[in-house]
């Protein structure tokens, strides 16, 4: 019995953690290249979830439903998140390259507030239920009290996404350009890499991952509102810092640690302080090991 409870918490933590990891990847990739905390990244995630809700909602209301709808909703959500991420970078960050460090960060905070309120005003301040589109697989029945079908779908999707991302970064030309830009932006420019395009692409990829996370969360938790991006964003950012910002495996590790610590803390103690556990972790990590678990200590050039 106790073991089962433990496993249940373990898998729910794993599920949450893998979603945090998906969002954290966007932070880490952007930070790696332009050293900016893309504060509005959580909002991209939220917009992804919202667009999915709208597509799925319209479809169900007009009488369609099923797993295929989820795929369609996810595809459109990804498309839109990518478009928003791309536009965001172009409008709010690109004109600020070479400005003092606080400027793009404040701009990002501004965009975060703007996007939240844009969705609030264009849609609704209420929580909207997200249609249940992930079916209960029959083969999961024996273990359903430990790990549900939705959790399985999330884990598999995350895993596949991450494998694809790793392949993209390690094997393709684009990935090589991204890694070079991360190493040294001005050098990359000198050797003929179109840095602007690489940065845009990084935002697009980050946004796609966030949207996948958004759709998964929405169908798992079952509701969406304009504010979900903020907290998820902060937690995912913490995950990125925890694992070592700029490091892709670090983001995954950080996400899982946060997922598990939340899940176990809520399961064995109390959920009152669940949301601030992340911050306590963040403060401790930054004090003890500012570079994060897998991060490299970079000497500042003088």
């Amino acid at each position: 019995m106790d073991m089962e409870y433990f496993l249940e918490l373990f898998f729910s933590g794993l599920t949450r953690g893998s979603i945090y990891a998906l969002i954290a990847l966007g932070y880490t990739m952007v930070y790696g290249i332009i050293q900016l905390i893309n504060f509005a990244h959580g909002e991209i995630y939220m917009i992804g979830a919202f667009v999915a809700l709208i597509v799925a909602g319209v479809c169900t209301i007009y009488g369609l439903s099923g797993f295929a709808i989820l795929i369609l909703a996810a595809a459109i959500a990804i498309l839109y998140a990518a478009a928003y991420g791309y536009t965001l970078e172009k409008i709010a960050y690109r004109p600020l390259r070479g400005s003092p460090r606080l400027s793009p960060l404040i701009s990002a905070i501004g965009m975060s507030i703007f996007l939240q309120n844009y969705v609030l005003l264009a849609q609704t301040p209420d929580y909207l239920p997200f249609p249940r589109l992930i079916p209960s697989f029959a083969f999961m029945d024996p273990v359903a009290h430990i790990i549900g079908s939705a959790e399985l779908v999330i884990l598999v999707t995350t895993l596949v996404t991450m494998v694809l991302l790793t392949l993209l970064i390690k094997k393709t030309r684009v990935g090589k350009a991204m890694r070079a830009t991360q190493q040294d932006l001005s050098m990359a420019r000198l050797v003929g890499i179109n840095v602007d395009r690489v940065i845009s692409l990084t935002f697009v990829i980050g946004s796609v991952l966030a949207a996948i996370g958004g759709v998964l969360v929405a169908s798992y938790i079952g509701q969406v509102n304009f504010y979900i991006g903020f907290l998820a964003g902060v937690k995912a950012f913490t995950a990125a810092v925890l694992g070592g910002i700029g490091s892709i495996p670090g983001a995954v590790l950080g996400g899982l640690i946060i997922g598990w610590s939340e899940s176990f803390a809520a399961g064995y103690f109390s959920s009152d302080y669940e949301d601030i556990l992340t911050f306590v972790l963040l403060v401790v990590i930054l004090i003890v090991r500012p570079a994060g678990i897998l991060g490299k200590v970079r000497k500042q050039k003088v």
Binding site: I47, I54, V55, G57, T60, I61, I76, L128, P129
Partner: peptide, 14 residues
């Protein structure tokens, strides 16, 4: 999607 469509999944209205 955000400005044109407004879907209410509680009352099933678009």
């Amino acid at each position: 999607p955000l400005m044109v469509v407004r879907v209410n999944t509680i009352e099933n209205i678009v």
